[in-house]
Design a protein around this nucleic acid. Structure first.
Length: 321
DNA sequence: GTCTATGCAAC
RNA sequence: CUUGUUGCAUAGAC
């Protein structure tokens, strides 16, 4: 075990780019330190973001996260156990391709899993190497976007739990917001509009190479029973990068709700809008639905979008009473 | 405070 | 070869 970790540090942490571009490498090191220690001062407009993603520290963290997540209880860790040998052989080539914008992600693997309600959830599972790279991207985007995200957004974010979200709903309810609209976005992950997401990303991320890499991940396609299918929309359910991408897009919804003065609580795609009067509920529901469809290109499921008194409302697995 | 390992939950 | 992010709990090592 300890030997494996030692190997890890050497293989993933070893940096061949250091020889050819020591200046860029040192810059990345510095940026890494700034992001880690002081979120406020990092310049998101940097064009050095890719170097930050490919820095040894970030890649090491990414490796350990990907390995650690696999159910390594004992028997089945075949997928991730192959990552270290692969990186030992190909990491220089991999990093070079990523730097030159030549890297092409592999299609995701389609796996259907049954949901509670009997329907199937379609997972899109990237290869271990792509999970590794996506994790590295995610780790750099998280501190950048944590500053931009809304205080009422709770899903997929560090130091924020579903319980925190419920407490926030309770606070609003106690302050006179007795009615709520529970928006249901139809197959949200599968219907994310690539152009819109890239547009929103580009406002903050100024390193075109990173934008391009993420775009390639969105378009990587999917293998369904040994047949390739292109992906024109959606983010893969199962990619390490997908949670933050979903929050980046839905942060636009948060901003719109704030602009209109509507209190809300959002956990991933599960959004609760709170209003004081019953009469306002349908008007708000309809205008926000129009916004989601026209501006964010997301479909609202009107049948499953429920309006009711907060008391008795079921949210994030709990009921209010 | 950092880090391993189980287990549960939300989406 | 059922993936992912996040949170909580328990045990243990510094």
């Amino acid at each position: 075990m300890e030997e494996t970790m030692q190997q890890t540090t050497e293989s993933v942490g070893c940096h061949q780019m250091n020889r050819t571009e020591s200046e860029g490498y040192d810059g990345a090191q510095t940026l890494m330190r700034i992001i880690g220690e002081n979120l406020v001062e990092v310049q998101t407009g940097t064009t050095n973001l890719l170097e930050l993603i490919l820095s040894p520290e970030n890649l090491n963290r990414s490796y350990r996260q990907v390995i650690g997540n696999d159910g390594s209880g004992g028997v089945d860790k075949m997928g991730t156990s192959e990552l270290l040998p692969y990186l030992n052989l190909h990491k220089d080539e991999l990093i070079e391709q990523l730097q030159k914008g030549k890297y092409r992600p592999n299609p995701v693997r389609r796996v259907d899993i049954p949901k509670d309600n009997g329907k199937a959830r379609q997972l899109g599972i990237p290869t271990v190497v792509d999970r590794f790279i996506q994790q590295a991207i995610s780790q750099v985007l998280i501190p950048i976007y944590e500053r931009e995200f809304n205080d009422n957004s709770f899903g997929f974010r560090p130091n924020r739990s579903a319980h925190d979200a419920l407490k926030r709903v309770q606070e609003y309810a106690d302050n006179g917001y007795h009615y709520c609209i529970n928006l249901d976005l139809e197959r949200f992950f599968d219907t994310v509009n690539h152009s819109k997401l890239i547009e929103v990303l580009s406002r903050t991320i100024k390193d075109g190479r990173v934008i391009s890499l993420i775009h390639h991940y969105l378009k990587a396609g999917v293998m369904v029973a040994h047949k390739y299918e292109s992906t024109e929309e959606g983010v893969p359910q199962g990619g390490p990068l997908s949670p933050i991408l979903s929050n980046i897009l839905l942060n636009e919804l948060d901003k719109e709700l704030s602009r209109r003065g509507h209190p809300f609580v959002r956990y991933a795609d599960d959004c609760l809008i709170l209003v004081k009067s019953k009469r306002a509920t349908e008007r708000v529901r309809d205008s926000i639905s129009t916004y989601l469809e026209k501006k964010l290109f997301l479909k609202v499921n009107m049948e499953k979008t429920i309006i009711r008194d907060v008391r008795g409302m079921k949210y994030l697995g709990y009921s209010f009473y």
